[in-house]
Structures are given as C-alpha cells and as structure tokens.
Amino acid sequence: MTEPAFLVLTALVDEPRHGYGIAQEVERLSGGRVQLKIGTLYGVLDRLAADGCVEADREEVRQGRLRRYYRLTDEGARALEEEAVRLADNARRAVERLRLRQAGGPA
C-alpha cells in the first residue's frame, strides 16, 4: 500500500469526508508533509474504490458546488489495520536494533 493510499484510508476512519476534506486531513495527518494534488487524490480514490476499500457515502451541494463524500468500508478498515500492524512491526524492529546499537550490542 502506498503512503497516500494509507493516509487517505486513515483520513476516512473517523468519518466520511469529501475530496477537499480528505486532502486537508491527509495534510494534517502527515504534519504537512503530504499535500495531495487533486488529480493524485482521485487516482488514489479510484484505486481504493476498485479494491473495495472505500465507497461513495453521500452527495451534498454547498454554495452551488458538488461535494461527494467517501467512507471507509469494512474491507478498507481491514486492509488499513493490516498495513498499520505491518508498519508498526517494522518500526518496532528498527527501534529495537537502534537501541542495541546505541547500547554497544551487535550492529
């Protein structure tokens, strides 16, 4: 799973969001490091929708503009959890080895 896809799924965990809402949340989650361009965002959403990880929730018209909201599916939640566990495991192993190195153990 790519980082943008991971962040988009994470952005949808708490509530359905529309395109710009997702982009904003991704920026917040990544501490401003990942700023999804709209074309990129919709490419990611298409891919996640094709994999059954997200689906359209509802549509709203605000100030004459269409907002389509997306929500995380159960399948998407499962995929996100698996990826989060995998990343956390990797991070834990990296931290353990770094501590060993700092303590003067085997590099």
Binding site: H18, G19, Y20, R65
Partner: peptide, 27 residues
C-alpha cells in the same frame, strides 16, 4: 464537478494549488 469543487475549495482556503489565476504546474 467534484474535482473542480475540491480544487476551488483549496484555492479559496489558500491551498498551494493555484497562482491566483492559474492552476500550478504540479496540480
């Protein structure tokens, strides 16, 4: 429509995707 909506919302809130009159190159 939703892509335009997302892009213009970003523009109105000063997101770095436009240059007043033109969408930026990365966009």
């Amino acid at each position: 429509e939703e892509m335009v909506s997302a892009f213009m919302e970003g523009a109105q809130r000063g997101r770095a995707g436009h240059d007043d009159q033109r969408p930026r190159l990365l966009e």
